[in-house]
């Protein structure tokens, strides 16, 4: 779906890969410019890892095993794929929320970019592309940790990798779309709270099947639940047709987020 969307615009001449690349290149340049960025990069990796160790391994020692689809799973094995999905989410989000918002609202970076041949949709694609480069580093490292701890096999880790990319795309687009709506830094508190609620209740630490029916329906509609289910199905080596549904959800979210963000950029900056 996303590919068709992009392919259609490519053939219409509305997207030039070189210009999307230029937007990505700008961020690589910024990365080289100073150590501050690297600190942010590192902290983004350690957060889900710390949760995996404290809750997955620590609390897991008290919980023992939990039943899932007729299998008895060690608790850490259950939590690890969820933390993988979370790391894909937060890797993409931190780039397309804080950094995107700063560039849009304060540094006026996009204003300068849009005075050139680059189009809003190309800005959105380039920023998402950069978020993916950054997010992939997190998920790759996290997958290595999981394999190292015996929480998944190398082959299934390889299978889960594209799923984490899709998770990154979906949350990157969503974050970018939301960023275009924010009024100021105060709104980030709201967003952080929403992100934390997703983090706690998306079937991350306990199976959603045990939630009350109403809550379960709500949770199943949210993106991190979809992401966790997709990643967990692959990382645990238990693929099913249902995973395609989750993947479709995330692809649709990506397309909608990208289109919305590009439209908003146009409204805000090309008045």
């Amino acid at each position: 779906m996303v590919t068709t969307l992009i392919a259609a615009r490519l053939s219409a001449g509305a997207i030039a890969p070189g210009r999307v690349g230029a937007v990505i290149y700008r961020n690589i340049g910024a990365l080289r410019s100073g150590p501050a960025y690297w600190v942010v990069l590192l902290s983004g990796f350690f957060e889900p890892l710390l949760y995996l160790l404290s809750i997955g391994v620590g609390v897991g020692a008290l919980v023992g095993t939990i039943p899932l689809d007729g299998r008895a799973l060690p608790y850490a094995t259950f939590v690890a794929p969820a933390m993988l999905a979370v790391s894909a989410m937060s890797g993409a989000l931190s780039e397309t929320t804080f950094n995107f918002f700063f560039k849009m609202k304060y540094a006026k970076t996009f204003e300068a970019v849009l005075a050139t041949p680059v189009r809003p949709f190309e800005v959105a694609l380039g920023e998402l592309g950069w978020a993916m480069i950054r997010g992939s580093v997190y998920t790759l490292l996290f997958l290595l940790v999981m394999v190292g701890f015996g929480l998944t096999t190398p082959l299934w880790a390889l299978a889960a990798l594209p799923a984490t990319l899709l998770v990154g795309l979906a949350f990157g687009s969503l974050g970018m779309a939301v960023s275009t709506l924010l009024r100021g830094w105060q709104d980030f508190d709201l967003m952080t709270t929403a992100q934390f609620a997703l983090f706690l209740f998306s079937g991350t630490f306990s199976p959603v099947a045990e939630y009350p029916a109403v809550l379960r329906v709500v949770v199943q509609a949210t993106p991190l639940y979809q992401a966790v289910e997709l990643v967990r199905g692959l990382a645990l080596g238990a693929p099913s047709w249902g995973l395609l549904g989750h993947a479709a959800y995330l692809a649709a979210l990506t397309a909608a987020g990208l289109l919305f963000a590009a439209r908003r950029l146009e409204r805000l900056l090309l008045r």
């Binding site: 210009r19 340049g29 050139t116 041949p117």
Partner: peptide
């Protein structure tokens, strides 16, 4: 209002901008 890129050096501000023009 100046909208130079605060994350880039003086020279990179020019080279990066040049890339937007291909």
């Amino acid at each position: 209002l100046d909208n130079l890129d605060p994350d880039l050096s003086v020279r990179e501000n020019l080279t990066t901008y040049a890339r937007y023009f291909g």
